[in-house]
Design a binder for these strands. Structure first.
Lengths: 236, 236
DNA sequence: CAGTGGTCTAGACCACTAA
DNA sequence: TAGTGGTCTAGACCACTGG
């Protein structure tokens, strides 16, 4: 574990354990340097990381302050690892409807940057939270990277398997979303009515080396899903 | 302008002008250090910034590569400055329905961290793109910070006025969203039907010093709006 | 103007990738 | 194993906030 990551974890834990509230002040940089016995840049890197995570904000000439996001049960749009972590206090389950090795659609091939003749795993799942259907998910995994997959794995966390089981490193993702009306099939799977609202999300996940390995299309049940996001203009 | 910001702009411009594509390789760090005559940390800071913006990705032991987001007409969920910038190739206009000084609702007071007896500017607008209604927006601005506002300003970019006219510095924002059905009033404003889908977004914008100054509730026209987001796990 | 965070440097050393 | 990006340091100097 790198120093600046460990320090970030320690500081976040400190905030948590002392139940610090929005706008509470943290010790000054010099104090933190001494406390963790590291240079200024290392502490700064930890704090920048926490700032991006939405845990603190820094004000030049003033101090470092706590930023606490309040609402529970919201899915983070940035976590980039599926939503299992956001909803960990809830009971998330998956029902695998289909799992096959096949050729990608034109759309999937384009997003995965592969030939139409390549092999992909196609996975169709329904994901539930506390017994209620959260979303319908169709995913295409590049078989060159995701060399093996089965129903048992897919009924748990595929991302956990990719990272721990296959030892792959997940890097960045592109996410596109819009709102539309459910068609017959989607409504049926989600237990809603045709024409009801849906949030439709397309994601392309890449490994750290830039190779796309997963193209997913997810239809969310509007009654069960809510999302949050923390943005910070000066970090972009 | 800070060195690392200027360098980031220069590199992004270089990518743009040379029409570099996804996965194209940029010069190595040492080369960039020499070219811009700065230290390694400064170049690194520029590249980290571009990585967060989704412009490049860095692979240890391999190189720095271009990441180009493709789809046009999508609103960035991270830009945090209204969507004028994302849609700048389009004609964005605003129609002010209401603009008054009043007391905040309980909800607005809570989100703005002010008393119920404080004054706020309440602004209700319809925003259009190329003549089509994009969204209905209700905003509460803390009058202690946004000391003056009028219909003329509100029919242009309020954020531009806040930054340039009032000289305030916009920091971070919390964004919450979910999907629902339009009610009568919303449908009427957006030119849709009651029961049609909507994306509903609540945002709290803060100044760099952590003070919330704007609480907004926005209802998007599902036929006119689409969004994107670029996430990066190792940056959080 | 004292206190506090931000930028920048030069350089040592580490960790990963690809040939 | 050469090439390349990442971490970390110690310290100088800058820029902003708030009493």
């Amino acid at each position: 574990m790198l120093k600046y990551q460990q320090i970030a974890i320690d500081i976040e834990k400190y905030i948590e354990e002392h139940a610090l509230q929005q706008r509470d002040k943290l010790p000054v940089l010099e104090h933190l340097m001494a406390q963790f016995e590291v240079s200024k840049s290392t502490i700064t890197k930890s704090l920048d990381l926490l700032e991006r995570k939405g845990v603190v904000y820094q004000v030049r000439g003033s101090g470092i302050f706590v930023r606490r996001q309040s609402r529970k049960g919201y899915i983070s749009l940035l976590s980039n690892q599926g939503f299992k972590k956001d909803l960990e206090e809830f009971n998330v389950t998956s029902e695998v409807i289909e799992l096959t090795v096949c050729k990608p659609t034109k759309e999937a091939a384009h997003n995965l940057n592969i030939e139409l003749s390549s092999d992909v795993y196609y996975v169709k799942r329904i994901r539930c939270v506390n017994g209620k259907t959260l979303c319908l998910e169709e995913s295409y995994y590049n078989k060159a990277f995701i060399t093996y997959l089965n129903k048992e794995i897919a009924s748990e966390s595929i991302f956990h398997y990719i990272k721990e089981g296959l030892g792959l490193k997940v890097g960045f993702s592109d996410i596109y979303l819009h709102v539309d009306k459910l068609n017959d099939e989607e409504a049926d799977y989600l237990g809603l009515k045709k024409g009801d609202p849906k949030l439709f999300m397309e994601s392309v996940f890449h490994l750290t080396n830039g190779q796309p390995f997963d193209f997913s299309k997810v239809t969310y049940n509007f009654e069960q899903s809510q999302f949050f996001l923390q943005a910070n203009s000066h970090l972009l």
